[in-house]
Design a protein around this nucleic acid. Structure first.
Lengths: 189, 189
DNA sequence: CTAATAGTGTCTCTGAGACACTATGTG
DNA sequence: CACATAGTGTCTCAGAGACACTATTAG
């Protein structure tokens, strides 16, 4: 067992009456104890070096986004076999999971419709500054607040809730919601 | 057999010592009797309605591009069970293959790095007018020749062969080759 | 008041596209 | 020569980004 003791991505075998997305969601929720804000198929890995003992192993990888935890988060006891890591400081991963993680990060950065999913890192409502910080984290560089504001609002899918976020030592910021947009055509995966 | 007599996309089961790309390439070449100019994983389909008789069926779909045939094309006898169809006039397809075909076409149209693969519809050398016609076919609308020329050459991956294509009743056009570009990181599929 | 961020106005620069123009082949 | 397409020059317009400026809160 060359990978004994290493961290691995959550996952598991699909079942005969379960869609691929269903398997991804089930195994992910089982590990995290919380539903993701976004889930999308990433890529299928089936290199022959993955398969030991003459048994073929194909992994259909998904990637997910988690927003900020609401009030009720880890209501159960934390599982010591589950942990979060920063993409900047991943530990050594078992199997070819490091490659899968790299691929997922590249996909997130290059996603054209990125603006449509970034808000899923946040809660239900958020300020433009919070949304901008998500973009800055993903893109890895500062973003001009003025230009970001115009661009984000011009997309037409941010709804002003009328509420503001007070408490900070400066002018309060408006809180926005994301308008439900048309999902991509599912593709019955 | 509800799909008896319908056309289907080429494909087949993967083998235990074969990569996914290998399976795609093998089954495709077996049907077409010719190697594609481009091959890329498309999406994995695993809806439960695909699986009959309590046997689970997951399809990992690939899409490919074929260039204009060189001198030696169908040197064998044409297989009556293999045919090409225009995407505008597909016959009814078996299983969920129509959905897969739609997905492939959408992917081709939306591919950001589209400029990097369009030339694979053509032969080794080609004029800018030929390359432009590929773009026009995919995008479904005419493209300004002057602007296309500048944009295509600005990508920096077209190499002027120094040759020209004569014979037409107008000024001869230069022939270009596509410079070998860095492949995406393979992802050991 | 000051500090700090929210939010607005506006300039510049770049790339896409429209389109007039010149170049060079065949018939 | 006429004609058709190759190939060049250049204008306009829209969007990205830089950055100065005003607005509004906490302390």
């Amino acid at each position: 067992m060359p990978f004994r003791g290493l961290w691995a991505l959550p996952g598991g075998p699909t079942q005969w009456d379960e869609t691929l997305t269903g398997t991804a969601l089930r195994t992910l929720v089982s590990a995290v104890q919380r539903a993701p804000g976004y889930l999308e198929q990433l890529y299928s890995f089936g290199g022959i070096e993955r398969s030991a003992n003459a048994q073929r192993l194909v992994t259909i990888a998904y990637w997910a986004l988690y927003g900020e935890s609401g009030s009720a988060d880890g209501q159960g006891q934390p599982d010591p076999n589950v942990a979060w890591f920063s993409a900047d400081a991943l530990p050594e991963l078992a199997f070819d999971h490091a490659e899968i993680a790299d691929y997922a990060l590249a996909r997130l950065r290059s996603k054209t419709e990125y603006a449509a999913v970034a808000h899923r890192f946040l809660g239900e409502t958020f300020t433009l500054a919070r949304l901008r910080s998500v973009h800055e984290a993903v893109r890895g560089r500062p973003v001009d607040p003025a230009n970001f504001r115009r661009q984000a609002l011009a997309q037409g899918n941010l709804i002003d809730t009328g509420l503001v976020e007070t408490g900070a030592a400066h002018r309060p910021a408006r809180l926005y919601r994301f308008a439900a947009a048309a999902e991509p055509p599912a593709a019955s995966a």
